[in-house]
Simulated scan of single mutants.
Amino acid sequence: MSSEPLHPAAREVLLAALDQGYADPRRLHAPARGARLMLDNAREVVAGCLGVRPDEVSFTGSGTEAVHRGLLGLLRGRRRVGERLVHSAVEHSTVLHAAAWAGGDHLAVPVDRDGRVSVEDFAAACAEPGVAVAALQSANHEVGTCQPVAEVAARIGEVPLLVDACASAGRLPLPEGWSAAAASAHKWGGPAGVGLLLVRKGARWRNPFPGDDRVDERTAGFENVPAALAAAAALRAVVEERAEVGARQRALVDRVRHGVLAVPDVEVVGHPDDRLPHVVTFSCLYVDGEALVHALARHGFAVASGSACTSSSLEPSHVLAAMGALTHGNVRLSLTRDADETDVERFLAVLPGVVADIRAEAGL
């Protein structure tokens, strides 16, 4: 699954805030002032958790919106320099869609078999004439590989860097060197429909969309104050418990990475060590991804296949293709905070039979 179930801390705060945070934070009456205090509190908590300034935090309607606003705003702020965007070949489709919408030239920097860019290659691409902005995810949403964001940022000079931190925010510290960054609350157990746009103080960011007379000039529309406060509560809880939960999930993922190799013709992808603690992806040769998803669902396992960006269409993953890995028959597991050894061992017990049955139906 790409979403984490609502964290207990978020549920408690959300229910309490629904009765208090309904008013428009722009207004001056008492309920509005209360809503404004709640929104400001949410911003303070998020800033503390991520190590940023409160005035660098904006709440958006989703992680996708945060990526779009962050990237397009940096491009607009640098249009006198050029229109070229440099990004890794494994960025989320939100980056690719925003780049296509903006027009101009964009260059995808290749990755290695683990899904990681070369710092040298990325820096060389950013040194080309007309490069306005660079985009590099903190960790891959699909295979878990972490990118050398801080090292890249130190090498690309004045080129501003957008960091898509949707997959890693809360679970790993926010890397250094970004001019704008994006995160998504449902990834860490906050409510869906809340994203974070971070814009570094002093960055040349210009609003790429029509403005709005809101408290926050970087966004538009009436903020969902209760959801923002619940997202902040969940983020704080996840950051406080990430050492323990992360270590437990990393051990479980290691067990999966080794255990699935008992199935013939299986390839585990992503960096074995420098990765998200809770994500693992593997591909099964001679197996249809959709059939695998449905078969595992019958055993109670919610897994994904195809591209993590367009999984509903089960299109081949551009991430796996860029890595030179198998693009069919892949399974992506995202462990929730309450997953345990029993869940993992049952999955590993079920998988060989499921794969064997699918291959047998295909005459293999």
Rank of each mutant, 00 (worst) to 15 (best):
L333Y: 01
P175F: 10
E44Q: 14
R218A: 09
N224F: 11
P208C: 03
G189T: 07
L75E: 01
A251H: 12
R359T: 02
A262Y: 01
V163P: 03
G195H: 04
A139K: 01
R84D: 01
R298F: 04
P148G: 09
A243V: 12
S312M: 06
E361P: 04
P25A: 03
A220V: 09
R298N: 14
E244F: 07
E290K: 13
V81L: 12
C309F: 15
V280T: 14
V280Y: 02
D338F: 13
R250A: 15
A102C: 11
H271M: 00
A102W: 15
T310S: 12
L197V: 08
S118Y: 12
E267M: 05
G63L: 02
P25F: 11
A23H: 10
E83Y: 00
R206M: 12
V354I: 05
R332I: 04
R80M: 07
S312I: 02
G104Q: 07
V194L: 06
R248L: 12
P31I: 08
T281C: 15
V57R: 09
D273N: 09
L6E: 08
V269C: 00
D24M: 00
R255K: 14
I358G: 10
D265N: 09
I156S: 02
A291W: 08
V109D: 04
E290Q: 14
L252G: 09
G193T: 10
T342H: 13
E361M: 12
L326F: 01
M323Q: 04
V238E: 02
I358A: 13
A16R: 12
P272Y: 03
H97T: 15
L28H: 08
H97N: 13
E361A: 15
V133K: 01
P210H: 11
L198R: 00
H271N: 10
A231Q: 04
L196R: 15
R236I: 06
P160M: 07
D114L: 06
R214M: 12
V239K: 10
S283N: 09
V263H: 07
P175S: 10
L351V: 05
G34E: 11
T64G: 15
R275C: 10
G211C: 10
A89N: 03
V293A: 05
L261C: 15
G103I: 10
A16D: 06
G63V: 06
S305T: 14
L15G: 14
H97A: 14
A247M: 07
V303C: 07
E4W: 05
G211I: 07
T145H: 06
R346L: 14
A30C: 04
E158D: 15
G115S: 07
A360L: 10
G70C: 06
A135N: 11
A153S: 08
R359S: 10
S334N: 11
G211A: 13
R204T: 08
G177T: 04
A360H: 15
G103S: 10
D212F: 11
T342E: 15
H278D: 08
V163M: 09
R248V: 09
G34F: 01
L14P: 06
L314F: 15
E315T: 14
H92P: 04
T145E: 05
R359Y: 11
A10R: 00
A297S: 12
W205C: 03
L50V: 09
Y22E: 13
A89I: 08
E315A: 12
R43S: 09
L96V: 14
